[in-house]
């Protein structure tokens, strides 16, 4: 168990009730005694209904917040704060708008204390890695969404963390850009050997990217099941997404998520469901269809 690169050891995170929630009483438990191991060099995808604490999980792992109970071990040592051994890629890119693409990639290197002389070469190499060789001097507002996310990925890779944490990084992109970035991410992962924890609400994305997929329950978040994804030899099949194995895994995760999505939706409108008491009766498949549609 301790041989895992990352190990969530019965991690609980509760948030004090905000003003809006004070009426319903008590604190909100985002993650509840969650246990999950991630192997070194693995591409693990966490998928779950919205509001299940996926992003909380990532904040905890990134050291941006502290667990209420339990601990997170990285290489056997508990996480106590942010560190350059873990790089985070955010959905909204988080690029500094006053810096060029190159300046943004250099930002992490400055944080790490890489000497100025060595930065330029590292910046160029990583912009090259994400296919942005000619865009070093562009500002973020001159780049498309997909290019911005490439810059963000380059920035996180440049300071060479062991672990890459990705919080729905492609959710804001159009379908085609997302597909090509997914393929590229797999390529980068294969080339760099990083351990990647990738958070998404998209089932297709999870199956396509993950070696293993951890399916979470709705709030409070726990790991419902971890699924090993075996798509055979990816490079041998022209269109992975239409293979039988892909469909099988997709359905597997869809089934696991169906109940959770329903539960999450019921929790989001407590006033109506509480009085009716039987939300499962109506619209059984509609919520999941919506999820599917978003996955596209």
């Amino acid at each position: 168990m301790t041989t895992d690169k990352i190990y969530f050891d019965r991690v609980t995170k509760t948030f004090p009730a905000g003003a809006a929630r004070r009426a319903t009483g008590g604190a909100v438990t985002a993650v509840d005694r969650l246990t999950l191991g991630v192997r070194a060099g693995e591409f693990l995808v966490v998928v779950g209904p919205s509001g299940c604490g996926k992003s909380t999980l990532l904040d905890l792992l990134g050291g941006l917040s502290k667990p209420t109970a339990g601990q997170i071990l990285v290489d056997g040592r508990p996480v106590t704060g942010p560190g350059l051994d873990r790089g985070i890629v955010f959905q909204q890119y988080a690029l500094l708008p006053w810096r060029t693409a190159a300046g943004n990639v250099a930002f992490g290197l400055e944080a790490k204390g890489v000497p100025r002389a060595d930065r330029a070469e590292l910046v160029a190499r990583h912009l090259d890695l994400v296919g942005l060789r000619g865009f070093a001097e562009r500002y973020p507002h001159e780049l498309s969404g997909g290019m911005k996310q490439r810059v963000a990925i380059a920035r996180s890779l440049a300071y060479d963390p062991d672990i890459l944490l990705m919080d729905e990084p492609f959710a804001a992109l159009d379908a085609q850009t997302r597909d090509s970035l997914q393929d590229e991410l797999v390529r980068i992962w294969e080339r760099t050997g990083k351990t990647i924890v990738f958070i998404t609400h998209g089932i297709d994305e999870a199956v396509h990217l993950g070696q293993r997929v951890a399916v979470m329950t709705s709030r409070p978040g726990r790991v419902k099941q971890v699924i090993e994804i075996d798509l055979g030899d990816r490079s041998a099949v022209a269109d992975v997404r239409s293979s039988d194995a892909f469909r099988h895994h997709r359905h597997q995760i869809w089934s696991l998520l169906r109940d959770e999505v329903r539960a999450a939706q019921a929790a989001e409108r407590p006033s109506t469901t509480r009085t009716e008491e039987a939300p499962a009766g109506r619209g059984t498949s509609a919520p999941v269809r919506a999820e599917e549609a978003r996955v596209g």
Binding site: G83, A94, F107
Partner: peptide, 22 residues
Amino acid sequence: DPLLVRSARSMGLDHLRLFQKV
């Protein structure tokens, strides 16, 4: 943008450098 602050914090920037650079 609080996201920029979060992002910089995730890279382990201390308060002074966070202030200076972000």
